[in-house]
């Protein structure tokens, strides 16, 4: 059963799409600038029917998945290590805080030297975009585990592994989940943006190629597909997060 805000949300989306459709069909907006949503949907459908485009999509999704996986594993591990080493954490705090001031794309030539001319430099860009968010959220989550919970665990004489898996991880789960959510978003940004300018394959490259060829239907179709993929994943993560928070009363 859909809630009232949910219904309102859908109504807003449908109204915005109808408005854009009308504006495009009636010629208020130039076709060179933007195409009608139905034309975008047709473009997306056409792209899905093309083996070449499906290949681009799969390449991008594989790179993003690798980037997310690496960012989550490395981010959790580094975050947990910094939590255990407060002096090192205090030393690194300014770097973590100012990390996003560094444009990660400047590292692309370095990644090409390191990994060669393949997909790994793009995975690395997605990874460096995402990993710090995971580290920061892991640190935040572990630091916020209530003292009473940590002391109770000490009383129960858990093994170090039990302590990590049965106390610290579930207690910090909302923050770890937020870190994972950021990893998804930042990995998509890193990989797609990288493909736009630095790649010969992938969804970002295909969108850039369509743009340069004045093929608006394909470009908007692929953009719509990208929007649906990223939006769908984020919506699903949001639903899981809401369930997690609801059960735990906001914590």
């Amino acid at each position: 059963m859909m809630t009232r805000p949910g219904k309102l949300r859908w109504a807003l989306i449908i109204a915005a799409l109808a408005l854009l459709e009308g504006a495009c069909r009636l010629g208020f907006v130039s076709r060179q600038t933007i195409i009608a949503p139905t034309a975008m949907a047709a473009g997306a459908w056409q792209a899905l029917g093309s083996a070449e485009m499906r290949g681009h999509i799969l390449i991008t999704l594989a790179s993003v998945a690798q980037s997310i996986g690496l960012a989550i594993v490395v981010g959790f591990a580094v975050g947990a290590a910094l939590y255990r080493l407060p002096r090192l954490r205090r030393t690194l705090d300014p770097f973590l805080a100012s990390y996003y001031a560094v444009p990660a794309f400047v590292f692309y030539p370095v990644f090409i030297v390191l990994f060669g001319l393949n997909r790994w430099p793009l995975v690395a860009i997605g990874f460096v975009f995402a990993v710090t968010a995971v580290i920061i959220n892991t640190l935040d989550g572990l630091s916020r585990v209530p003292r009473g919970v940590r002391r109770t665990a000490a009383v129960m004489k858990l093994t170090p592994l039990q302590h990590i898996f049965f106390i610290m991880l579930p207690a910090a789960a909302p923050w770890l989940f937020t870190g994972a959510k950021f990893a998804v978003v930042y990995s998509f940004i890193g990989v797609i943006a990288g493909e736009f300018v630095l790649s010969g394959a992938g969804l970002g490259h295909a969108i850039a190629f369509a743009y340069n060829s004045f093929d608006n239907e394909t470009m908007y179709g692929l953009m719509l597909l990208l929007f649906l993929i990223v939006g769908g994943i984020n919506m699903q993560l949001w639903i899981w997060e809401q369930r997690l928070y609801a059960r735990r009363g906001g914590y």
Binding site: R147, A171, R248
Partner: peptide, 29 residues
Amino acid sequence: GEVPDGIGVVFQEDASFPWLSVYDNAAFA
């Protein structure tokens, strides 16, 4: 330096585990 068997502790802070049900909290140890 280690909690001896036979000693149980309840702290002032709320130390219930929010990710577990009441039953699972009680059964945890």
